[in-house]
Design a protein around this nucleic acid. Structure first.
Lengths: 335, 335
DNA sequence: TAAAATTAGTAAAACGATTAACTAAATGTG
DNA sequence: CACATTTAGTTAATCGTTTTACTAATTTTA
């Protein structure tokens, strides 16, 4: 499709000025007399002229566009982060190119390449698991990248904002331990990512303080949807029917877990206690209301964008930000 | 930030060929001998060279990027549509520039301008309420736009995919009427948009068939979040405590509505029946499980992208697609 | 009033690809 | 062998801006 649009030259001709003048009027890059300026603006308005930004980008080597690469999608925590980033980008006059890699490392690398070639000014990346050393190709050229929510511990030179997932795992587990639970199932969806790893470390540390040995079979993976939560509960209870509590790592799985527990005619929190991650909106009307431990998606999102902006404006910018978790105590934990 | 990247010329020089040859190798636009091709590819690989797409776009007048402009965000129906569109775009080799207008008409218009100037190949738009005649500036130049989910009835020449919201309103209302309800509250969030209007017409038509006069005060607006749902319920029950059923237009509001109903110590469905829109994942574990009427977000999303592609490839493409609603009957309706 | 400084605008060279039109060498054909 | 065709690659124009370096006219200054 050829879009034979109006160009700056056309505007210039019609306003009897040079293209340079039109450009200066549009960008306020030089003082142009009131009369000329108005003449130009009038022609622009009349034709609904908007400058071609491919040309502009090409010339300026910048696009006022940022890439946002997430590794998974419809879980309310991620959605809200995306929303916050979009909002912040908008405020700052940026656009956002959104890509979901679906936890595919290969695709992630291709995406970063593509976005880079699209002249985005920087990328916010929530990495998949797996080796992301390829990122060093970009960072060594100082191409601005910041890591969102997850990080890769071997890569130190990329700014990042994450939650304090160690603390999160620790707090949630501690809370359940304090209620007297000894066998606590840990249900997660993505292996080998910092969020899971750190929460597990927190979980282990809490157990250690209670002198309870860590049992690997209580650390169970499931598909990050409702079904995954149900299956994980089933799996865990089959392994050991003494398990009396679950700590579930995302909202859909939490729903699945509850649904399975109810299906098994077990009572929450009397037979099984439960803490879920993230404050999804239905938590408080579910019976019993769910106790959640959470991180602030909006803050994480906005911070990520601000970091990216800093990195764009200052190649030496470097910071690792870790936000603390908080807990909304309702009934499912046994309180 | 200047990114002094490697250009095609650099690759050409190093491979001892012309830039044209490099381009041909990359794009397979001309037969190049095996030996030259490999030489070029080797140099490209060695430098991690990726063509500058600002230049490419400028030259080709196309960007393989589509704009996606939504009017609101974190409600699972919209999220899933976005997800589906992103997925389809990816399959088709497109990228997506995502903007949320937050129901702001002015901003919507600015956004369309901006995206247009960014050389997107087309735009998928879920319009705000209000006058969108400005779109005609684009359609008359055959700039590809398709309307998603909502439409504006005065604009006929833009392809669109929506749900059959008349049927949806009709079916939901009918269902409640069949359970003997006479006074049914209709809780919505966005006025003057086709989705609301059409559902209302369906609601009215159903009432008409039962010879029940339409009462405008049962048609109540609320903020599209949990709180909005609670407030609307409160508002309606204050107006008329004979109201025995609610039809709620989005997931978060449904949750708010339930929460308020429970707070008032009313039983669902005995005292108050309820049908919500959209199949959010917690519907079935809420007590009682919620009856939902819904539209298929994935189908709508994918269809929208396919339509856009059609429109991009054929300026005369024109179609209005309307997808039928379906109902998931659980307990909250009184079944 | 002559020189200097300011103002208002322009010409033309980028930016980095694609692609139509061309050339030169190699191969095929009668 | 002479001519046509195919193959492999190149040259240079082009896309639509921005921006540096320039000019010409006007105003200020001494």
């Amino acid at each position: 499709m050829k879009k034979e649009g109006i160009t700056m030259k056309d505007i210039a001709r019609e306003a009897n000025v040079s293209a340079a003048t039109v450009s200066h009027v549009i960008n306020n890059t030089k003082h142009i007399s009131e009369v000329t300026r108005n003449k130009v603006l009038e022609v622009i308005k009349r034709h609904h002229y908007v400058p071609n930004s491919a040309a502009k980008n090409l010339r300026q080597q910048s696009s006022k566009t940022a890439g946002l690469v997430v590794s998974s999608f419809p879980d309310s925590f991620v959605t809200e982060m995306i929303f916050a980033i979009e909002e912040r980008a908008k405020e700052m006059g940026y656009n956002l190119l959104l890509v979901n890699t679906n936890e595919d490392r290969e695709y992630e690398e291709k995406t970063i390449n593509l976005l880079h070639s699209k002249q985005v000014d920087g990328i916010i990346l929530s990495p998949t698991s797996g080796d992301i050393q390829y990122l060093q190709n970009y960072t060594k050229d100082n191409f601005p990248i910041v890591m969102l929510n997850r990080y890769e511990s071997t890569i130190k030179n990329i700014p990042r904002v994450t939650g304090d997932n160690f603390q999160l795992g620790y707090d949630a587990t501690m809370h359940l331990l304090q209620h007297g639970h000894q066998k606590i199932g840990f249900i997660y969806s993505y292996p080998n990512v910092s969020t899971t790893d750190d929460r597990l470390k927190g979980y282990q540390e809490a157990l250690r303080q209670y002198n309870i040995p860590y049992q690997e079979e209580f650390f169970v993976q499931g598909y990050a949807k409702v079904k995954g939560g149900s299956d994980a509960v089933q799996d865990l209870l089959t392994k050991d029917n003494q398990i009396s509590a679950f700590f579930v790592q995302n909202d859909l799985m939490t729903i699945g877990a509850i649904s399975k527990i109810k299906e098994l005619k077990l009572k929450i929190p009397d037979d099984i206690a439960l803490i879920g991650f993230g404050d999804f909106s239905s938590s408080h009307i579910i019976d019993p209301p769910i106790t959640n431990i959470l991180l602030p998606p909006e803050t994480i999102g906005k911070t990520a964008f601000d970091m990216l902006l800093n990195k764009i404006n200052n190649p030496n910018y470097m910071k690792h930000i870790e936000l603390p978790p908080s807990m909304i105590v309702r009934k499912s934990c046994g309180c």
